[in-house]
C-alpha cells in the first residue's frame, strides 16, 4: 500500500546569480512499513527533501501525497494538524523544548491535540527507549544519546504515518549510534512504522530496506535491498 508519494519536487533558494536548486524534479513513492535510507554528499538536498515531505517547508513546485492526501493543498491550520498527527520528525540536534521535561517533551504532540495521553503507549515507549526514571528530567540534564531518544519518543508517540529522521546519529558516538538505529528498526518491525532516515553512515544505510541516493538535488540511485 502506498503511503507517501513525491511528485516532481523542486526547491529553489534565492534568485538570479544566487539561485540554488536544492531539489530538481524529485519523484518517488513509499510503501507502508518501508524503512528507507537517503544518502548523498553534503549539500545535495537531502534535508530539503525531508522537510518538504514533513510539511515544515514548502516546495517551489511539485506535490506530496500522504495517505492519498495532497499535503500542500491544505491550509496552514490543516497543515499544522497534519504534521501533528501524520509526521514524526527527528533532527540531528534533538530540538527538544528546554523548559519541558522528558515526559512533557514526548507527549507534546498529543497534548497539543488536546487529547489524553495514552499511558500504555507512553510507558511502552519509555521502556523501549530506555528512559525509565528519567521522565522528570529536563533536556539539559540528559546526554546527547538520551536527548535523541526523547526526540524519537516524541516522533513515535502519535503513531504517525511516517517518521522522518535527519541524520539522527550524526552527533553521536558509535555505541549510541547503533542503539538509535536499533530503536528505529524495532519500531519499524513492531508497529509496522514507515521510516525515512537520512544518513552518511554506510552501516546504517545497509540496514535499510531501500536506499535512495541524491546528488545535486536529483535522485541518482533508488534500489531495494534484497535480504
Amino acid at each position: 500500500m502506498e503511503i507517501l508519494r513525491a511528485e516532481n519536487l523542486t526547491k529553489i533558494y534565492g534568485s538570479g546569480a544566487n539561485e540554488v536548486r536544492a531539489l530538481d524534479g524529485v519523484s518517488f513513492s513509499v510503501e507502508k512499513g518501508e524503512f528507507i535510507a537517503i544518502v548523498g554528499p553534503s549539500g545535495s538536498g537531502k534535508s530539503t527533501l525531508l522537510h518538504i515531505l514533513g510539511g515544515v517547508d514548502r516546495p517551489t513546485s511539485g506535490k506530496v501525497y500522504m495517505d492519498g492526501q495532497d499535503v500542500f493543498a491544505q491550509n496552514e491550520e490543516q497543515l499544522a494538524i497534519f504534521r501533528r498527527r501524520q509526521v514524526g520528525l527527528i533532527y540531528q540536534f534533538y530540538n527538544l523544548i528546554p523548559v519541558l521535561n522528558v515526559r512533557e517533551n514526548i507527549t507534546l504532540p498529543v497534548l497539543m491535540d488536546g487529547r489524553k495521553v495514552n499511558e500504555e503507549r507512553f510507558n511502552e515507549l519509555i521502556s523501549v527507549l530506555n528512559l525509565k526514571g528519567k521522565e522528570n528530567f529536563l533536556p539539559h540534564q540528559l546526554s546527547g544519546g538520551q536527548q535523541q531518544r526523547v526526540s524519537i519518543g516524541r516522533a513515535l508517540m502519535n503513531a504517525p504515518a511516517v517518521v522522518l529522521a535527519d541524520e539522527p546519529t550524526g552527533n553521536l558516538d558509535s555505541k549510541n549510534r547503533q542503539e538509535i538505529i536499533e530503536l528505529l528498526k524495532i519500531s519499524n518491525k513492531k508497529y509496522n512504522q514507515t521510516i525515512i532516515v537520512i544518513t552518511h553512515d554506510e552501516n546504517i544505510a545497509l540496514q535499510a530496506d531501500r536506499i535512495i541516493a541524491i546528488e545535486d538535488g536529483k535522485i541518482t540511485h533508488d534500489e531495494v535491498m534484497k535480504r
Partner: peptide
C-alpha cells in the same frame, strides 16, 4: 525557534 519547533511537530498558528 521554539515556535518553529512546536510548529514542526504540529502546533497551529493560533496555538
Amino acid at each position: 525557534k521554539q515556535f518553529g519547533l512546536l510548529a514542526s511537530i504540529g502546533a497551529t498558528k493560533r496555538q
